[in-house]
Simulated scan of single mutants.
Amino acid sequence: MAAMAPLVSVLLMVVCVAALSPAAGAVRFVCNATAPRASTCQALVAYAPPNATTLAAVRALFQLRSHRALLAANGLPLSTPPTAPAPSPLRIRLPCLCSGGAGATFQRPTYRIRAGDTLDAIARGVFAGLVTYQDIAAANKVSDPNKIAVGQELWIPVPCSCDPVGGDPVVHYTYVVLPGSSVASIAQDFGTTEATVLALNRMPDAKSLLAGQVLDVPLRACSSAISNTAIDRNLRVPNGSYILTANNCVSCGCSSSTWQLDCQPTQGISSSLCPSAKCGDMFLGNTTTSPTSSCESTTCSYAGYTNSTSFAILANLTTSSACDAAAMSPTEQTAHSSAFRLASTWLRWTELIICLHVILLCVGFLKHD
């Protein structure tokens, strides 16, 4: 029996190392937002179609409510037809729900099982690795992943988050790591920091990044003048995309020069359907430069919409300094990740100490026998 002690110790060590390593089948983003309306938000998902397809096909797969919304999320012109080829990756805007400390897309997308489908093929093939078959099985209470029925409808719980980062609201982007990528290159591409990416994804270091890994990448959102009483008060738009709001009457994009929400009346929408929005003699989106400073400008900014008694589009005058904003680059964001990293490190050391105690107890027990 004593001769087996080294073998048992090795096995226990393997179990502990496995417990400390990220679970291959777990794709969960931290989501603890609990403020009013903060537990739900609009998140973005990066979808790389496995085969050549059209915008219409992608819209149907994710059950998006409008073709315009898909175009807006990807910064494509509203004149782009549904039959146009889908770029890769494609940004999909989906509702996110926080529950139990983690976030997943709310109710959508769903998938109806066809002959020959497996949960793994659905996860890896149809949804391009955004989820794992374990996540699909758990979300749909499938006890045996090998026993699924043709015609069965499954909810695909794509991971997402609504949490602020460092106290600032962001748009969380669900991103599948491409081969050859690094944490530093991903952070640079999306205007964040390496430390922030590591902290959000509870990664011990940049070397642990794997191709195909699903990352939570925070995208800086433009600040706005939207009123707290407006229906779309939680509107968040990152750079590189725009969003249609106020019953599609207003198109809002994010300006990377001022980092202010830039909203204009939507082109191509009948003016008879949209009430006018003005700030005195200025119309929504109009800007005037200060006669005393070329840096300072005043804009008739979008302030949200209401529909309590009648549909109304709100607007307010805002003043901004383009010179100060231009001096800031998207990457000049505070990491706000030290506490997160320390907590993660403390937990991992605690787990290691517990594992070592278990090993010593088992070895002592075997020697005693």
Rank of each mutant, 00 (worst) to 15 (best):
V8Y: 01
V14H: 10
C16I: 15
L20S: 13
A23S: 12
V30I: 14
N32K: 12
N32E: 15
A38M: 12
C41W: 10
A43G: 12
A46Q: 09
A57I: 01
S66W: 04
R68K: 11
L70P: 03
N74I: 01
L76P: 04
P81E: 03
T83N: 11
P87C: 05
P89C: 04
L90W: 02
I92Y: 01
P95H: 06
S99T: 11
T105L: 08
Y111L: 02
T118Y: 06
D120T: 09
V126H: 02
A128I: 05
G129K: 02
V131M: 05
Y133S: 10
N140K: 01
N140E: 02
V142L: 09
P145L: 00
N146K: 06
L154R: 04
W155R: 10
P157V: 07
C160L: 06
C162L: 09
P169A: 08
V171L: 09
Y175E: 06
V183G: 02
A206S: 08
L215M: 00
R220C: 09
R220G: 11
S224G: 09
N234A: 11
N239I: 14
S241T: 04
Y242S: 07
T245D: 02
N247D: 15
C252Y: 00
S255A: 10
S256T: 09
T258G: 07
T266D: 02
Q267A: 14
G268L: 04
G268W: 01
I269T: 12
S270I: 08
S271I: 07
S271T: 13
L273W: 09
C274T: 03
K278E: 12
C279L: 04
G280M: 04
F283M: 14
T288C: 08
P291T: 01
S293M: 10
S297H: 10
G304S: 04
Y305V: 05
F311D: 05
L314R: 11
N316S: 10
T319K: 09
D324Q: 14
Q333H: 12
A339K: 14
L342D: 15
R348F: 15
C355G: 09
H357D: 14
I359D: 09
L361K: 11
